[in-house]
């Protein structure tokens, strides 16, 4: 039996670069790739690099869905290239591979995700309640919630799919699902001493802009329940701290901490 062949339409192009005089460009190029059993789309990109286009730019590291480097869009859906099996795609039509739409293009499938690193660095770091960890008594039940969030591999697919960032480009006002997860992981860390995480989530990270469409949860390769377990509980904490009428009265008469 002849080997099956897949047709790929891969985005090739680059951002303008004033210094070297490169102009912005971009178009989809067609490549044919023989399909082998158990193949993933990243294998196909490597095949293209080895046979047709050695300069095809694609980020990847582990090829085991552990590092979150090879994020792209396959037939319009944000996916890890290393995790998308070929046998789960229809081969009778071209498979379209594009860079993440939410971030500026660098070249081909590589985008500039540095904004995410700026968002992360702005979040106040973990601060232990007790320096001497031998005195800690932390049980499995205490860590289950934060451990779910700490599985995040920072692939930024949730950032890519989020309407607030993707369609409305509100990077100025909204940190995005990845950092809601990070803030939740800190706020739910049993030994974090800071009590201003919720305030930060509301005022700096802009959690109010999320209208819980759950798109982020759907694309998470680690199956983190971003919306249900991170965003909604953090929204509830914002409501409790800032909008609870009973607490407002108690604060007014000095029976609760002032914000």
């Amino acid at each position: 039996m002849a080997k099956a062949e897949a047709t790929f339409h891969v985005f090739r192009g680059e951002a303008a670069d004033a210094e070297s005089g490169v102009e912005a460009s971009g178009e989809y190029q067609e490549y044919k790739v023989p399909v082998e059993e158990g193949m993933v789309v990243l294998d196909a990109m490597h095949y293209i690099q080895g046979e047709d286009a050695p300069d095809l730019a694609v980020r990847w590291n582990c090829k085991a869905a552990k590092c979150g480097s090879c994020s792209a869009e396959i037939n319009g859906k944000p996916r890890l290239l290393c995790k998308q099996r070929m046998d789960a795609l229809p081969l009778d039509e071209p498979i379209v591979v594009s860079p993440l739409k939410t971030f500026p293009l660098v070249k081909d499938l590589v985008t500039d995700v540095s904004w995410n690193y700026k968002m992360n660095a702005a979040i106040p770091p973990f601060q232990p309640k007790e320096e001497d960890t031998d005195k800690w008594e932390v049980f499995e039940n205490d860590v289950v919630r934060t451990q779910e969030f700490r599985k995040c591999i920072e692939c930024f697919l949730c950032q890519d799919v989020c309407h607030v960032l993707r369609n409305h480009d509100r990077k100025d006002a909204f940190a995005g699902p990845r950092f809601m997860v990070r803030l939740a992981s800190l706020d739910m860390h049993p030994m974090d001493a800071r009590n201003d995480r919720v305030k930060y989530t509301k005022e700096e990270a802009g959690i109010g802009l999320c209208n819980i469409t759950k798109c982020c949860t759907e694309v998470c390769p680690e199956d983190i329940k971003i919306t249900d377990n991170a965003i909604i509980p953090m929204k509830e904490r914002v409501v409790d701290e800032f909008y609870d009428p009973v607490m407002k009265v108690l604060r007014g008469i000095g029976l609760a901490h002032k914000k």
């Binding site: 680059e14 490169v22 690099q49 050695p54 095809l56 730019a57 660098v106 590589v110």
Partner: peptide, 14 residues
């Protein structure tokens, strides 16, 4: 020998 430009060129990196 490598083809393409110097921008993010995996063939050259290799």
């Amino acid at each position: 020998a490598v083809t393409g430009a110097r921008q993010f060129n995996p063939g050259w990196h290799l």
